[in-house]
Design a binder for these strands. Sequence first.
DNA 1: TTACAATACGAAAACGTTTTCGTAAAAGAG
DNA 2: CTCTTTTACGAAAACGTTTTCGTATTGTAA
Lengths: 340, 340
Amino acid sequence: MLNARTAHTTIKDIAKQLGVAPSTVTKALKDYPDVSEGMKEKARGLAKKMGYLPNSVAQSLQSGETTTIGVIVPEIKHHFFSAALDGIEEVAFKEGYSIFVCKSNEDYEREVINTRNLLSHFVAGIIVSISQHTKDVGHFIDVQARKIPLVFFDRVSDEIAANKVVVDDRAGASSAVAHLIESGYKRIAHLAGPDYLNISKERLKGYAAALKKAGIPFNADYLIYGGFDEEDGVHGFKRLMKLRPRPDALFCVNDPVALGVLLECKKRKVRVPEELAVVGFSDNPVVSQIDPPLTTVAQPAYEMGAVAAKMLLQQIRHGNGDFVPEVIKLKTKLMIRKTT
Amino acid sequence: MLNARTAHTTIKDIAKQLGVAPSTVTKALKDYPDVSEGMKEKARGLAKKMGYLPNSVAQSLQSGETTTIGVIVPEIKHHFFSAALDGIEEVAFKEGYSIFVCKSNEDYEREVINTRNLLSHFVAGIIVSISQHTKDVGHFIDVQARKIPLVFFDRVSDEIAANKVVVDDRAGASSAVAHLIESGYKRIAHLAGPDYLNISKERLKGYAAALKKAGIPFNADYLIYGGFDEEDGVHGFKRLMKLRPRPDALFCVNDPVALGVLLECKKRKVRVPEELAVVGFSDNPVVSQIDPPLTTVAQPAYEMGAVAAKMLLQQIRHGNGDFVPEVIKLKTKLMIRKTT
DNA sequence: TTACAATACGAAAACGTTTTCGTAAAAGAG
DNA sequence: CTCTTTTACGAAAACGTTTTCGTATTGTAA
């Protein structure tokens, strides 16, 4: 195995060249008051000449702190998460922090391993969007027990008191359904996500609230639970089409599900939005390009990441002994296109 | 600032509890042969009970190695890069490595800072896709001078000898055009990119090669240079439609250009693929979802990341004193859909 | 019994950095 | 000139881990 050590200049090397002690070099480079100007200049000059870079591993061990924050997301390549990562990186970079990026792959076991890994690397804090299959949050409780700042975004858990950044799912869902009602649709169905996940629950609540507000009775047949993928849309759609009367509008828990529905509509020659209106959630880049362009609820992914990072950094800096967990709800935006 | 140290169990803590020396605990936990079974069991038990996690910062300092690889990309949220990151993470995770993700934001200065940062963190190796505005590659030369393994992907530099992963643009273009020829199209036009860029040149060469191989004479009227955006597709399409005889097929330098063409086709009621076949390049997630789904040349973004990571890990493990830089050209894959 | 090998553990040093404390030498005050 | 202060540096310990070497105890063979 390659040993990087051989190739790096250390403070000791500089000290040796200068004929002084390592501590003097440290102090010179860090501009301590008890080092002469002459020594400081010599140290700086030689450090530059020798290409000295501080060994942050050693610094971290010494100080007991790192300038690294860990991030765990279910997927990297999905637009929502990569945009959020982008926001996190941006804020972290500006504050002098680096980010460890881990993907849980929607797998509970892997999420646990990732968490342990980050703790092992002594990250200053962790930002998480939990996996679809995570029911037990013991590993996050453990993070908090170790006094490591922890912030959740988007996929949060109710079972844990921590800083969270979410989107106002309920209001977003509500506005989408309200828009359907205003457009004259009467029999509005909902393809919901897994019932133990917060975003599913919130979006369902928004759906129900909008119906209630308009005086439309809730019809249990029109509520179908499923997952977050295209096939879940296909599957849900098939079940709904068997109902009589058929729904005339469909609010989907997210865009892929809506995409699955549209796919199936095309296959079965169901006209959108005349026979069936469809609304998604997220505003993935795809959905504005398809035909017909999908009406959907836009989530500020980049901003969510940025806000989560800011919360985490504040927690890191102010300590988290006395902090009171806070939930920041970001506003969604209804993008009205051609499927409604 | 928060001091994480207070909250963590160390080997010393375990040793104290057990009334033995730290070295014994290390050896017990690492299953050294010169420790009794009884001691090993006690150590393992207590470690688990106390929630011991190895401090990898200390391990790195001790061994002079980290299990971290650094990645620098121009953007995180673009699909190509996030898919590549996904591939990198997947391979790294399986091999026990974590990834530092840095975004250069297409900014040279920031790329330099990112590089320094990674070196400072003693990463085991670095994977880079360089920024659009990077002309000087001194910072990467510096990485090599420090004997840190370095792999480029997609956006590579000719001025530096290193492992690289790119896509075979020429072969990809050629296969796309060959497919058009096999499908019976005779008058195949090409909307090319800027003539000074490598990918434009390569794709054009592939186009020309496929025509030549099929014995179809090259028609200069059927070659139109433009940019990489949707409007370039619209513009090129308009020019082509004035020609007599009109082309019956169109190979576009990338997907957005093809999207522009399809848009204009729809507007003018040109039937695709009956009157005009269209092929793109990249396989952006959008293009499989539109109607009709676009035939295009897929670039294996995820695989590029994965291959880059594998190359890097090999370099890390086998040392890079004697290695000969290699350029891996990945095959593209023709995604035949409904526009041809 | 004597000699020797095996077993099981501990002490200490090292990785690179920082920080505290100590102390020579120089400078200043009286 | 003496005493005190300031200046400028060094020594040493520490962060948590690993590894090498040394050694006391036990077991085995002749």
